[in-house]
Amino acid sequence: MELHPLSLACFLATILFLFLNPHCEAQLLPTFYDQTCPNALTTIRSVIRTAISRERRMAASLIRLHFHDCFVQGCDASILLDAVPPLTSEKNAPQNFESARGFNVIDDVKSRVENICPGVVSCADILAVAARDASVAVGGPSWAVKLGRRDSTTASQSQATMDLPGLFDDLNTLISSFSRRGLNARDLVALSGAHTIGQAGCGTFRFRIYNGTNIDANFVSTRRRSCPSIGGDRNLAALDLVTPNSFDNNYYKNLIQRKGLLESDQVLFSGGSTNNIVTEYSNNRDSFYSDFAAAMVKMGDVGPPLTGSAGQIRKICSAIN
């Protein structure tokens, strides 16, 4: 078949554009490392399982780390970079400072993977796979992680401060924040369900238990025992008192009972547009699991991710090459 000269010119122009534009989105695939590093996923899973068996809380920390990465510059492992002027670290943003954790586990994974496949597997993909494996390790859903991301050579503390959801955001603010990243209200409620595991420091929920109105009185009394009105900011409390170490749908049952620990959790069930989704998930764990898995895959595409020749494959996750 012959191409018309004009069609041929357009075809060649398209190829040239794709070649010269490293930020052009390429397709992410679960099989991306099948040939270049076939043992990558089993190696990641082994390290993650060991880390969580040592400390159950680590599952929540790793899921949160992936979430906080994707919401700033897309899923590019920018959250892992240390501050080396002129680069500022997202680790120091208020939403991450002294609360984001699991960096040592990711470093361990990266070291193990580099030993078997040097310069092949990105830190961004490791974060994405670690989040999935963390969910499975504590009884949560699994999903096929799309792979092929590359790592950013930039990070921004100011952008993290601006882009990451805040503890006191109202429902409309949260919905808008997610919408800007292509995520809808159902994704917001599903992804918030990760708070069925993990812990929060007293300083993040003190205002709610001493000044909140949409909150259960007995819940307030229980929470105040470990969170005084002054001091004790780092005293930890489980986000879900009932099954704190199991990934289930109890988080949503807590919200219906006005027992959400964080203000940004309870707003999901406060008479607004997401009440029906919370009720659905509280009654149907399978529905929550299915939607959580789908939302995690969807979040993994936020950015869009760096692919092709954009970014780099970092040798260590905390510093650019």
Score class of each variant (00 low, 15 high):
133 D>W: 05
82 D>V: 13
190 A>H: 07
306 L>E: 09
140 G>M: 02
147 L>N: 05
18 L>V: 15
246 S>R: 11
313 I>L: 09
180 R>L: 09
60 A>M: 01
163 D>V: 01
65 L>H: 00
70 C>R: 00
247 F>Q: 04
270 S>E: 11
141 P>G: 10
275 N>H: 01
182 G>T: 12
280 E>G: 01
192 S>I: 10
263 E>P: 00
88 T>S: 13
254 N>Y: 02
16 L>I: 14
123 C>A: 01
116 I>Y: 02
204 T>C: 11
238 A>L: 07
288 F>N: 01
210 Y>P: 05
178 F>E: 14
104 N>V: 08
105 V>P: 01
272 G>S: 02
53 S>A: 10
301 D>T: 11
127 L>G: 02
56 R>I: 08
202 C>E: 03
277 I>Y: 00
281 Y>Q: 03
294 A>G: 07
158 S>N: 02
169 D>T: 11
270 S>P: 06
50 T>W: 08
267 V>Q: 02
297 V>N: 05
160 A>G: 06
189 V>C: 05
316 I>D: 03
71 F>E: 05
118 P>Y: 02
290 S>I: 00
248 D>M: 03
219 F>N: 00
66 H>P: 01
77 A>Y: 07
190 A>C: 07
294 A>P: 04
261 L>A: 08
119 G>E: 12
114 E>L: 13
236 L>T: 12
233 D>W: 13
17 F>T: 15
140 G>E: 01
158 S>M: 01
229 S>G: 13
281 Y>S: 04
67 F>S: 04
172 N>S: 11
157 Q>E: 13
321 N>A: 04
182 G>H: 10
92 N>W: 14
147 L>D: 08
279 T>G: 02
175 I>C: 05
50 T>E: 10
197 I>A: 07
168 F>M: 07
236 L>Y: 15
255 L>A: 04
